[in-house]
Design a protein around this nucleic acid. Structure first.
Length: 369
DNA sequence: ATCCAGTCGT
DNA sequence: ACGACCGGAT
């Protein structure tokens, strides 16, 4: 696992591909032109070396805990909104044990307006589970990570890969889109992650030596970054894409997304999510208020009494709020202690400037020490 | 209205 | 497999 700093980048090693034997691609009747994965790997990884954003959780000195915190915060949340919260979070709770011992009210306040605050609850529950089951350390394997609260298929693979260089198949919304365009020839991947897409993602992984996760991780990080910066959902920057000439979607004439591929909007105004968010915004100020006053002061004139009440009850059930004899506040002490029936959701149970592949290499170094 | 490094319960 | 779950920006 240990890689010397002067070692040749993993991307330079020969990449074997199980798919096509042709040098540049193949013509499949039902799809059209399909590029040779090996060539795409080489191009995208090289592009990543010079174009990756210098994100702190990709720095060589970032701990696995820092990687994990970033992955949770980044769920359905853009990088620019995560950055400041992540910095404060890591400064305040540099290890899982620190977060595990923190008052939940402080955890939710620090989460601020990142959205989906149940993620903060689950992250604290995950930290507590790591203290109990993993000696306060972030576990190394995707299977162990997957068992933690708030860690799904994507996050388990991402933490195992980016923090420990495990050769996991990482598939997020960016990567699904890159695959859909470059290899399947579709404008968008569709709403649901299908088994066919999962199979394709596995087939597309570079086949490196069994013990070398660096190449797999470089491909994961590179494809993700390409989707985030170039192969974006709308107005992709194909003129700056390193594989524009290999892209199946481009080869097909860049057909627009079909109705099937469109993602239905979730809506916001008038939803319970908006009302819950408004309640949480009040509680985050640190205020402790009577149930009636709290519901009355919500800045949502269109929300019915019934909806307000229902949303507060759901927050109490989720462990995002606490009710002390009619006085509502953020939940006080650590995580699971005194909650309503059922308990809280959490329950128990790049080198500085250019970063890029250099960061992956440095991670390898650190792990080898 | 759509998108964003998704997860969870039904 | 589908909907709920936050919030800001385009």
């Amino acid at each position: 696992m240990a890689m010397r700093p002067t070692a040749e980048p993993a991307a330079r090693t020969t990449l074997a591909s199980p798919m096509n034997s042709a040098r540049e691609g193949s013509l499949r009747p039902e799809i059209g032109f399909t590029p040779e994965p090996t060539l795409v790997h080489e191009r995208v990884i090289e592009w990543f070396e010079g174009n990756a954003r210098p994100l702190p959780w990709r720095e060589p000195d970032c701990t696995p805990w820092g990687v994990m915190v970033s992955e949770i915060m980044l769920q359905q949340t853009p990088v620019v909104r995560v950055l400041p919260r992540w910095e404060l979070w890591m400064q305040r709770w540099p290890k899982p044990a620190d977060l595990a011992a923190a008052p939940t009210s402080e955890v939710l306040t620090a989460w601020d307006r990142l959205g989906y605050p149940r993620r903060a609850l689950r992250l604290q529950a995950a930290a507590q589970a790591m203290v109990e089951r993993h000696q306060g350390e972030v576990p190394r394997t995707a299977a162990e990570l997957r068992a933690l609260p708030g860690v799904g298929e994507y996050t388990a693979a991402a933490v195992a890969c980016f923090a420990f260089l495990e050769p996991e198949v990482v598939v997020d919304t960016n990567i699904r889109r890159v695959h859909a365009r470059a290899f399947t020839g579709h404008a968008l991947p569709g709403k649901t992650y299908t088994s066919a897409q999962r199979r394709l993602a596995h087939e597309l992984m570079p086949a490196a030596e069994p013990d070398d996760g660096a190449t797999a991780c470089a491909w994961n990080a590179s494809a993700m970054e390409l989707g985030a910066l170039i192969c974006t959902a709308r107005a992709p920057q194909c003129q700056a894409c390193p594989v524009a000439d290999l892209c199946a979607w481009r080869a097909a004439g860049s057909p627009p997304a079909t109705q099937e591929q469109q993602t239905r909007g979730q809506g916001w105004a008038g939803t319970d999510r908006q009302v819950r968010g408004a309640i949480m915004a009040v509680l985050r100020t640190g205020e402790t208020v009577g149930r009636t006053e709290l519901l009355d002061e919500l800045p949502l004139p269109d929300a019915s009494q019934e909806q307000r009440s229902r949303c507060l009850d759901s927050l109490l059930r989720d462990g995002l709020a606490a009710d002390d004899a009619g006085q509502i506040s953020l939940p006080g002490a650590q995580g699971s202690a005194s909650q309503g029936p059922g308990g809280p959701v959490a329950g128990q149970t790049a080198g500085t400037g250019s970063a890029g592949l250099a960061a992956v290499e440095h991670q390898a170094q650190r792990l080898g020490e």
